[in-house]
Amino acid sequence: MTTFREYRSRIAAGSEPVHDQPALPSYAVPIQGERAGFVTRASAAIIDVVLVFLVVLGTVVAVWMLSFIVQPATSQADAFAGDRVPRVGALIAYGYVLNVVYWTVGWATGGRTVGNLILGVRVVNFRGERVRWAGAFVRALFCTLFVPGLLWVIVSGTNRSVQDVVLRTSVIHDWVVGVPGLTRKEHP
């Protein structure tokens, strides 16, 4: 217990207040900053893919409903006609594009997608910094097109996927409590 007088004298002496207690469960403290394993990363990816799938599904429903404005239904069968929704191939392509865009934005802005946030991991580059837009885009494209690359995490001695090895990125444990804020730094 520090008295207010001691506290003020310490601040006056120029020391910063220290929060010794990280807002973390104690068992998670030692692993912070370590590379995450396969299950964690696969779970995060699955959550992201499910989210993208839901968005694709939502798009299909929206397109289907909008189609009635362009071409009102004449019969029950016409309402559920196949030509009212995009073809499966187009939807898959759309999903891939959406996935690449989503992962790019997530990794370039905060190093996290929703799946990463839930599983408490973050993508960093070889310097331990947040990947930039170009790097995030390349990684997102690589991860989306070559999903089996993640399997390398299982055998890798450093928990790296093929994408991590090639792009020299890491997926580290970083269990934030809430949604991290994207604070803008003061520019001089």
Partner: peptide, 17 residues
């Protein structure tokens, strides 16, 4: 496994910097 990675986890910083 060697799991050390460069970078400082935000979770140990006490706040989201």
């Amino acid at each position: 496994r060697k799991l050390d990675a460069p970078g400082e986890p935000q979770s140990l910083g006490g706040r989201f910097r």
